[in-house]
């Protein structure tokens, strides 16, 4: 089990190409914790915007009658990957991890695997 700060540090430290990470509450759209990003990447804007992405997908699934859960969402830009991973259980309901990767340095399969492990260890 790892706490929030440790998990965010581990995302940036152990995942190749990771440039920013946030833990976001999608019931409110606000970030519980952020790391990286810097001046040119506002993680609060990203948290609010990606909350709409998650909510929209959940609503679509509801309309489609899918009784299933989102495990993760991958958004591929020209130069970046954005990964959204929803937390499961242990009070993690309504939260997601948001990870920004530099596409030229990241290994997508490895990043997804590591993010799953970090999410599994995260205790909120």
């Amino acid at each position: 089990m790892a706490n929030l700060e440790t998990s965010l540090k581990e995302c940036l430290g152990s995942i190749d190409g990771a440039t920013a990470v946030a833990l976001v509450d999608y019931t409110s759209g606000m970030a519980l914790g952020t790391l990286g990003g810097g001046k040119d990447f506002n993680l609060e804007v990203a948290a609010a915007g990606n909350t709409d992405v998650v909510r929209s997908k959940l609503r679509t699934m509801e309309h489609l009658g899918l009784k299933d859960e989102i495990e993760d969402i991958l958004i591929t830009l020209n130069t970046q990957y954005h990964m959204i991973r929803l937390l499961k259980g242990r009070g993690g309901n309504g939260l997601f991890l948001y990870l920004v990767l530099d596409a030229s340095r990241a290994n997508l399969a490895m990043a997804r695997h590591q993010l799953r492990r970090i999410e599994g260890d995260l205790e909120v």
């Binding site: 976001v24 409110s28 948290a47 609010a48 915007g49 709409d52």
Partner: peptide, 8 residues
């Protein structure tokens, strides 16, 4: 409402 967006 998305409070994060409301703030922004």
């Amino acid at each position: 409402v998305n409070v994060g967006r409301l703030h922004l």
